[in-house]
Amino acid sequence: MKKKEKTIKNGVCLKDRIWKSRYYYLMLLPAVAYVLIFCYAPMGGLQIAFKNYKVSLGMWGSKWIGFRNFTDFFTSYSFPQLMENTFVLSFYQILIGFPIPIVIALILNELKGGFKKTTQTILYAPHFISTVVLVGVMTTMFSPSQGVINTLLEAIGMERIYFMGEPQYFRHLYVWSGVWQGMGWSAIVYLAALAGVDPALHEAADIDGATRMQKILHINLPSIMPTIIIMLILRMGQIASIGYEKVYLMQNDLNVSTAEVISTYVYKRGIINMNYSFSTAMGLFNNVINVTMLLVANKVSKKVSGSGLF
């Protein structure tokens, strides 16, 4: 401790240390330059959320208008629906999408040898398919005229349904296609954690005559709990930002009543209608919700389990 104080107080010494680290700074330079330009400069651009941005006046020359963009958004006719769509979709996705990979990891962990490895490989495959292709395949499979799903429905005597165009199916299709694509890949993290479970625990349980189900519930699951908690906190930090790329691809004129979320609305109002200030304000609102949720989740986790992200 004393040594550290000395080096910081002593200017020459700090200078020396910086000079000695010059090669490391060189390695950091591209990354720092990148985040300053592409992450921090846009944060400066957030000021237009509080301005009436005019392209002709520029970012700094435009007039301040306080919180008017925000109040406009909160009182707008689409606000309640956007909030509902965003949060229902997000909570639905967490509720279904978060536990499934954990269960899959616990199951895969019980498999052995070649079958385990092959199963893993195949379950990862959908992760490598692009969102465009995923939505394209869905559009095709659920197509009312040619889709295989409707062919099967008809075969068992049901009516053909235009799934992609019905607002009531949008959330299910979104969440479950996400499960299909991500369940194997998201299990990796838990599988890695399971590989680290102390074998002595299992041996002790064997001696006590525990069944395999008991071992899963009382050894494996508690062992990976810290990983689960950290993943959940991270997930909560994205609560308001659902993958707008996929939502946008799945949207059409018929299903927007449930498919429009804040982030896709930001894109439409901002990039397409060039309503820059207004959509920046919406984006900022979205971001603030995310950060708040992250902090709350972290705090709760610290209180309940004693461990958190930071």
Binding site: A41, P42, G44, G45, I48, V266, I271, T280
Partner: peptide, 10 residues
């Protein structure tokens, strides 16, 4: 992050 629009303007 700055979000979509500020990044776009940048």
């Amino acid at each position: 992050s700055g979000g979509l629009i500020p990044t776009f303007l940048l």
